[in-house]
Design a protein around this nucleic acid. Sequence first.
DNA 1: TATTTTTGTAATAAAACTGTAACAGTTTTG
DNA 2: CAAAACTGTTACAGTTTTATTACAAAAATA
Lengths: 227, 227
Amino acid sequence: MNANIHIVEDEQSIVTLVEYNLSKEGFKVNSSTNGENGFKAIKDTNPDLVLMDWMLPDLSGVEICKLLKKNDKYKNIPIIMLTAKGEEEDKVKALNIGADDYITKPFSFPELLARIKALLRRSKPSVAEDIISFGDLKIDRITRKVYRANKQIDLGPTEYNLLDFFIKNPKRVYSREQLLTNVWGDNINVESRTVDVHIRRLRQAINLEGTKDLIRTVRAAGYSLDN
Amino acid sequence: MNANIHIVEDEQSIVTLVEYNLSKEGFKVNSSTNGENGFKAIKDTNPDLVLMDWMLPDLSGVEICKLLKKNDKYKNIPIIMLTAKGEEEDKVKALNIGADDYITKPFSFPELLARIKALLRRSKPSVAEDIISFGDLKIDRITRKVYRANKQIDLGPTEYNLLDFFIKNPKRVYSREQLLTNVWGDNINVESRTVDVHIRRLRQAINLEGTKDLIRTVRAAGYSLDN
DNA sequence: TATTTTTGTAATAAAACTGTAACAGTTTTG
DNA sequence: CAAAACTGTTACAGTTTTATTACAAAAATA
């Protein structure tokens, strides 16, 4: 599975553990250790799912959840609340404020994974699907193969990730910065111009002689997968 | 989000902080550090929302708020009052004098942002919407595409921004100076006649053969998106 | 470890966009 | 009606942004 997950959690041990395991499953994981940054990062990177601690240093997970669910633009991002308490009433409260699921610490990783997958399948089929298409472009996440007009195409790792990201939100324009955080990951130090080069490599790979460029350049804004 | 926000606040640190964060969110921000200039600037630039300090060197925020709310032309601009005091009675007072919301310092940026967005959604849907139409003209901020009569149109960055600005307040006339500060940004050094040229480019792009010009020239005043 | 693949950057080329000035045309004013 | 004020249009040089290429370093693979 190839989804962007954001974790907002102040206990470093949990972050490390979950981050490690989710990465191994193929997820792209970013994290924040307090509410303020978490909220900002979620809006910036538009993750496919959020794991959030109930209690947080400054802005609580409950607050962030409420804020996100109030906003049309973000309310569809599924949120799983993590909490130390196992009270039934908290669960009710969590669901009331709009959280999509609720899991008590300590939890087993397989349990967490199952819930994540269930939510993603429900809320963002394109993220959970094994095979996604856009026009005559097809990407198979199980075999990690990409096809254009039924012909297989070879892509390097970065180009593959780039395409996988684009295809989840076709036609939407992403800035170089957004692409860097979503495809390369957080706190990585790469020139934004580097995106251009990978865009070129991706174009070279997926475009067919004589057909329209599948990647649209939007001057002063970024790129989008389009046709 | 693409809205023009004006801040009237004498504490430079707050201005800097808020300005920086709002810019990153995509807002276009201008600011004044005293009441006199603030009042003038608000009338001049017609922002989509105003953040105003309760106490100000000369003309107090309370006064400005009252003045604006008394004037039909400006009373619909949402105003958020910033104050150091957290008294409940002040909140009542703020709302009484016409402020639309009230936030006490120190405040967290996410909280401010949430309130700003909530207000904008309520008062100026066209600022918060992803897709806006004016007649058979449509602008999609996600894909950054513009359509006239369902046919896609190519616009350069400046023309796109210009149209995006016009469409938020259709029919309203903007002077060249207003357009410069709102579309180009503050403290930029561009001849006001340059606006003419971009207006021409925009016209050329969006107008259809045989139909009325969508941009109206108002002699000695400026331009408006009209029909 | 040697070989191959992938990656990021910098340099350069190409393309798109911008602002200005000049002049033409139009409307208003005296 | 002539002068003045304002707007429309055009061309173009300069600037900014994007495309392309080559290459060295890093990473993966054999």
